[in-house]
Design a protein around this nucleic acid. Structure first.
Lengths: 125, 125
DNA sequence: CGTCATTCAATGACAAGGAATATTATGACG
DNA sequence: CGTCATAATATTCCTTGTCATTGAATGACG
């Protein structure tokens, strides 16, 4: 039915898709090329860096990202394998884990973040 | 460095991600449940329906969607297997193909589109 | 304390996408 | 016409994500 309204909606949607995919692809390539790390990996790293007051993370990561719990688990696997993050067992609830940046992780994050912000500025500005 | 500006950028980016993922997931689930078709499949169907003046499509689809050429090829595989679309060889350039909706494809598209638009309205409104 | 429901995280099976490559068709040009 | 560069798709291989399930720990409650 309502064709004009509908077309607008579809346009808006495509524009969101475009903005999302173009930006994500650009950032992903850049990070991959310069730091050998994907966008999702960086975003988890970023979240961990963001909550350096610490607590039992892993769980809370799931709430701050659109990724699935299992996806987060696997991203963290890779980050850990790359030596950027480490899983710490949580004394008061042994089901939980919290994450810490390693020195390497902190270093990589701080330089990668500059790149990341710059690309956001370029693509969203 | 420029923390305030950067935080804004990151916020904006997360908001785009959210808007994209939440909407995409909602539509995907709904289409999957009611029509047994995924979001990407629907979007290709939608594009084909949109260009019913016809020409050697397949190629042009790649330009109207953020999907890769190979992804498009596979989505079309599935649509064809589901009997919603058919690949027609193109007389004047036998490398190209163009796509046609089957009767079933047209039918499904027209009812699914209603749902699709409604969900866009709900999620982007 | 024992049981049961619930929560956090990891895993395995499987689907879907991307990059690189293969395949076939064209067109240009000697 | 034969060769070669290029174009449109398909295909293969690998990576990543999701869903469903599992395992372990916790808390409530009789």
């Amino acid at each position: 039915m309502a064709t004009t309204r509908d077309r607008q909606l579809v346009e808006q949607w495509r524009s969101i898709q475009d903005s999302y995919f173009r930006t994500a692809a650009a950032i992903d390539r850049a990070l991959e090329a310069k730091f050998d790390i994907g966008l999702n990996e960086f975003e988890i790293l970023d979240l961990v860096a963001d909550s350096e007051e610490s607590s039992c993370r892993m769980k809370s990561l799931g709430e701050r990202t659109p990724m699935t719990q299992s996806a987060v688990s696997k991203v963290v696997d890779r980050l850990e394998k790359a030596g950027l993050v480490s899983r710490q067992t949580c004394a008061d609830d042994r089901r939980s884990l919290f994450l810490e940046l390693t020195a390497a992780g902190r270093a990589l994050h701080s330089t990668a973040a500059v790149e990341h912000r710059a690309l956001l500025r370029e693509n969203l500005g």
